[in-house]
Simulated scan of single mutants.
Amino acid sequence: MSIQEKIKGIEDEMARTQVNKATNRHLGVLRARIARLKEQDRERIERGRGKVGEGYTVRKDGDATIVLLGFPSVGKSTLLNHLTNSKSKVAAYDFTTLTVIPGIMNYRGAKIQILDIPGIIKGASEGKGLGKRILSVTRSADLLIVLVDVFNPVVREVLLNEIRNIGIRPDEESPRINIEKRGSGGIVITDMVGMTEMDKEGMMQILREYRYHNSRVVVREDVGYDKFVDVLLKNTIYIPTLTVLNKIDMVDESYIDELKKTLGYDFLPISADTDVNLEELKEKLFEKLDLIRIYMRPKGENPDFEEPLIIRNGSSIEDIADKIHRNLKKDLRFTRIWGKSVKFGGQKVSLNHVPMDEDILTFY
């Protein structure tokens, strides 16, 4: 029996099972079994395919990477060109972009890489239209722009489902569950929250399904079986998104107001073609990426306010040193900082100190 036949058999069993509290564990185990089979199928395809074709592997560049996700002819290439001065081909017909086109957006000192990927179609995650190869690029993103047409905004959920099917969890955070494989001792589950969505027996069935016969599990968040499986798969990626509604130059303001009332999600309305709200889009992208600027001040010199060092908010002095040179912290005696993260200017800080936006920093 093939993997697809096994999946179909489990799906049929799930369809026959009534959904209620009593069947929650059974359905959770069946979903876990499907997830494992799909992962095995993905690995089999990857092994058979070998290297990814030209145009679908792009080296990450700049301070962060954003991927444009949308259906064909939604305006991704136009948006890339207007944000980055790139030269992605633009035309009013489907599948204009046939490879991944990179561009760099310079904003507030940051160099942000934006990737225009070929348009997604429904079923892309199952291989339609080279979909798996295209969607694989999204896994390297720090942020996804979900671009939808003003006349077809309901496709957003289709796009999100396609990336969910390849192990991306949009706008979610990794569940606070720790799983440690051991050499012996069986399965030990420590519930620190009072679980209501799962029970230990169901978790143990799933752990055995994934061959975690000897393991220690610590649960620090009350989540369901699907998220528990996400932790087990280990290839699950959590990426924030920003939904952008394009081509608003073709409708009036009352149409946009009505969409804000009826759609079940927030969006930023823009016109890539006429540059409407593109500055606001740049600001929102910077905020979503959670980047901050650090001004380096060489010993005995003035700070460099022209080219700030761009880092993720929450990065430590050690992270900054590693970004400049991997061996820098070995020779670092101490660091002085001027700015909002310290009590007084020139304060000495340790490697685990976390600077704030526009702090000035000197290494000694």
Rank of each mutant, 00 (worst) to 15 (best):
L309M: 03
L159A: 07
E43V: 11
T17W: 01
I117Y: 08
V146N: 03
G300W: 00
W338L: 06
I66S: 12
L30H: 01
V188R: 14
R108N: 09
I311A: 02
I187Q: 07
Y265K: 08
K288H: 13
A35T: 01
E5K: 11
K299Y: 03
I310L: 00
D61W: 10
A272V: 04
N277M: 12
K132S: 13
K299V: 07
I237M: 14
L361M: 07
E13A: 12
K261F: 00
G339L: 02
M198C: 03
T138V: 12
N81G: 09
V158F: 14
I10H: 06
A91S: 05
R336Q: 05
K132L: 13
D322K: 14
D266L: 11
R176L: 14
G75E: 10
G127R: 14
T84W: 00
T236F: 07
R133G: 15
V100H: 09
L30R: 08
N178I: 03
R220Y: 06
D249F: 08
G62P: 08
A124P: 06
K89D: 10
K87Q: 14
G202V: 03
N235H: 12
E157K: 13
V193I: 10
I320C: 00
G339V: 01
D357A: 04
G9Y: 15
D275F: 06
P72R: 09
I311S: 01
G9L: 15
T241R: 09
R220F: 11
R33M: 04
P240I: 10
S73N: 14
K323R: 03
K247H: 08
D275R: 11
G202C: 05
I360L: 05
S350M: 12
V349N: 04
T84D: 02
R156P: 08
R156W: 13
Y93W: 11
I163Y: 15
S88H: 07
